[in-house]
């Protein structure tokens, strides 16, 4: 099955770490509010500007840091694809596992200006700039990972196979 995403590009530079996407202070918030602090320390107000279907392009070592669920945060913000010069391995799995396709694509920063429209074919590893023209090869997403994305992520897979309950446990707040 193909996995193609098209959308408006947001550009971020090198060394964007997990704590910038989900600061520790967001951990105790309800899930529907956690994403409101995404990039607040470096780009206040971004959460209100981004819309569903947008694409995030990062620089080198994108997503370096902790196991905190930054893929889910970006997904809740509306991001539907992530590309970077290089993506941290833990960040990559935290994206794939919540059905947010992400791919390493050296040279991608130079191909786009912010606001351009990108078309990304994850299975073939092709990235196009539909606004200005030009395309580039990425490192294609292996079939097993495309399958996880297409299945709706790990939780959906585990629910479907009867391994876990269908609703999350929520720790009491008061």
């Amino acid at each position: 099955m193909d996995l193609v995403r098209e959308g408006r590009v947001w550009k971020f530079g090198d060394q964007i770490n997990t704590d910038l996407m989900l600061p520790g202070s967001a951990f105790r918030l309800p899930k529907e509010e956690q994403h409101m602090l995404c990039f607040e320390a470096i780009r206040p107000g971004w959460v209100k500007e981004v819309r569903e279907g947008d694409i995030l392009i990062g620089g080198r070592n994108f997503g370096l840091g902790s196991g905190r669920p930054v893929g889910a945060v970006l997904h809740t913000c509306g991001i539907r694809a992530v590309l970077a010069e290089s993506i941290n391995g833990l960040c990559l799995r935290n994206c794939i596992n919540v059905s947010l396709p992400a791919m390493n694509c050296p040279g991608v920063s130079a191909l786009f200006e912010e606001g351009d429209t990108a078309r990304i074919d994850f299975r073939r590893g092709r990235v196009e700039n539909l606004t200005r023209g030009g395309e580039i090869d990425a490192m294609p997403l292996p079939g097993i990972l495309v399958d996880i994305v297409q299945a709706g992520g790990i939780v959906e897979m585990l629910i479907a196979q009867g391994f876990i309950e269908s609703e999350p446990f929520l720790a009491a707040r008061s």
Binding site: P69, L90, N97, P142, M157, F163
Partner: peptide, 21 residues
Amino acid sequence: ARGAGPLDALQAMTQGLVWYP
């Protein structure tokens, strides 16, 4: 060992599987 995500840990505990590039 490498940092997995909380969902990887869930898959590892229940299905007994985890993926690595």
